[in-house]
Amino acid sequence: MSMPLVEAAASGPAQIRIGRCGACGHRYFPFQPLGCERCGAHGATQSPILVPARGSVLAAVGVWKHRSPGIEAPFQVADVLLDAGVKVRALIDADPCRPATLGTPVSGIVVQAGDTPVAPLRFTVVGERA
């Protein structure tokens, strides 16, 4: 449970730690051994897998008002469908006034986190939508 959610890679995109259920094959994020949402298998049947933080945008928005600690508005947040088939919700390092559109390819890097609970992962746009 204490394994980091993301890790830097020697080259290419960051790695995201997803989970895979050994009983039914379901893949999910984040990894946790509490139990598989599809079949209920738990504990050692659940395995962490590192997959590239690379995928395409399902939706992205600029956030203009935000009060919780850890990050100051404005910022851009997105739902990203990883190439590994798992959806994550993360920050996009881009102008909040120009949210990434559906299908835009993105890739994540590990950044300096600072004193914040927000994970040190930022996606950037790496091309045009297919």
Binding site: M1, L5, V6, P30, Q32, L34, L58, A59, A60, V61, V63, K65, H66, S68, P69, G70, I71, V77, A78, D79, V88, R89, A90, L91, P99, T101, L102, P117, V118, A119, L121
Partner: peptide
């Protein structure tokens, strides 16, 4: 006890703003 990339960052308002953007597109 399950970690999150953005703990406390995505308010209901932002959750549904993402839905709005997705619906519009």
């Amino acid at each position: 006890g399950v970690p999150d990339l953005l703990p406390g960052v995505v308010s209901p308002m932002t959750h549904f703003a993402l839905l709005a953007q997705s619906y519009m597109e």
